[in-house]
Structures are given as C-alpha cells and as structure tokens.
C-alpha cells in the first residue's frame, strides 16, 4: 500500500497549483470591486430611503441574505442564461464558467457589503449631521467631511472579514467544475490518485492569504485614526 501522504507529492503539487492562484485571486478581486460599487448604490438607496428603489433593495437584500452561496451559484450557472435569453435574446450559455461564478459572487457580496456600508453610515449619530448643518455646511460637505470619514472607520473591519469570507467562498466554484485553485487541486488528485497533498497545498495557500488579508485590514484600521482618536 502506497502511503497516503508524501512530502514529494506535496512539493510537486505546489507549482502546479500556484499557477492557478491568480485565477482565484482575480475572481475574488473582480467580485469585490464590482460588488462594492453595487453596494455603494444599495447603501445610498437604503440610507436615503429612496422611494420604490428602497423596497427593491430591501427585497434584493432579503433574498440574497437568505440564499446560501452554493444555491446562488447553481441558479446563476444554470438558470441565468435561460433568463437572459428570454429577456434579451442573447445566448450567454457558453460563457466561461468563471464568469458565472463571478456574477454569483457579485450578487451575493453586493447585498452583504451593502449592509456593511449602510450600517457604517448609520452608525454616525444624526446629531453630528444636524450640527454640521447648523454651522452652515452643505449636504455634500456634511457627508464627505463628517459622516464618511467616521463611517469608513466603522466599515473597515467588517469589510475586511467579509473579504476573507469571499476569498474562502471562491472554493465553491468546484461545484460547477471551474478551473481555479481548488479545481486544479481536484485534477492533480485525479491524475496522481493522491488527493491529500494537493488539498493540503490549497489549505496552506488559503490560510496564508486569509491571514495576509486580515493583517492588511488590521494595518489599515490602525492607520485610519479619523473619528476614533477622540473616543
């Protein structure tokens, strides 16, 4: 019986897998950026209580927060092309699997980050805005000078842990057979019949990068003193 784990297998798997790390990072990064843009609009609508749109956003948030990642991914992968063809008469069925993964992540993260941003903005007491108006600041000035700096401080830790979670959740792309870090680990396992080594490499990579992201946000949090120094 050959042994289940060999260090040779472990080290042999590293270069094969690292080649696909950029794919995973790219999926994470693109999802994060686009989701944040969506989240800003969602938060804006929620904070301002824009009529109609506020209800739409509420529905979006409730649905997305009620759906597990895997279910969103499967729905987007199998059902979205059908929907798009029905509405726009465009065939997106054959797009790369990673595109569907990114769309799923964006939909999900848009809701979560949206809530983080809304909570952050609403955490700044209203009296501060009122005080700003009373000294003659405009709405814009108030938002950018008083509310935004303080809410960024509140949002940083939550945003960071959300990013770690998003990064780790990219592993579910293996459900649809997309070829990223975890997908490649599966194939290395299949080709060598040694699954433990590639999975361990994946584990190590995920732990290292998650820690790096956490450290980065801890650093940002410590650097960003505005609004906290007086508390």
């Amino acid at each position: 019986m050959s042994s289940y784990f060999t260090w040779e297998g472990f080290f042999a798997a590293i270069p094969l897998l690292l080649e696909y790390l950029p794919v995973t990072l790219r999926v994470t990064f693109i999802s994060l950026v686009v989701a944040t843009i969506i989240a800003v609009f969602v938060a804006l609508i929620r904070v301002r209580r824009v009529p109609v749109l506020n209800m739409v956003c509420k529905c979006y948030l409730h649905i997305m927060r009620g759906l597990p990642y895997v279910v969103i991914l499967l729905l987007v992968y199998y059902y979205l092309p059908f929907l798009v063809r029905k509405i726009f008469a465009v065939d997106i069925n054959r797009w790369d699997k990673l595109v569907f993964a990114v769309i799923a992540f964006i939909l999900h993260e848009g809701a979560y980050i949206g809530e983080i941003l809304r909570a952050a903005v609403e955490s700044v007491p209203k009296v501060q805005s009122e005080a700003a108006y009373s000294v003659g600041m405009s709405e814009m000035q108030t938002f950018f000078r008083i509310v935004l700096p303080q809410s960024v401080k509140v949002a940083i830790p939550a945003y960071g842990s959300n990013l770690v979670e998003l990064f780790q959740n990219t592993t579910i792309t293996f459900m649809i057979g997309a070829m990223d870090l975890i997908g490649r680990a599966n194939t290395v396992g299949g080709a060598t019949m040694h699954y433990i080594e590639p999975y361990l490499v994946v584990a190590v990579v995920y732990v290292i990068i998650s820690i790096l992201i956490e450290l980065l946000f801890k650093f940002l949090d410590s650097k960003y003193k505005f609004g906290a120094s007086t508390v």
Binding site: L16, E19, Y20, G177, M179, G183, R184, N186, T187, V188, G189, G190, A191, T192, M193
Partner: peptide, 15 residues
C-alpha cells in the same frame, strides 16, 4: 469530458 479520471480524461502537469 472529465478532468479527474486517469487515463480516460485528466489534466497533465502542464495543465
């Protein structure tokens, strides 16, 4: 085809 079933269908070391 599949990606994890040597020797039917798999990914070689060059991906």
């Amino acid at each position: 085809s599949g990606t994890i079933n040597w020797p039917f269908c798999f990914m070689d070391e060059n991906g």
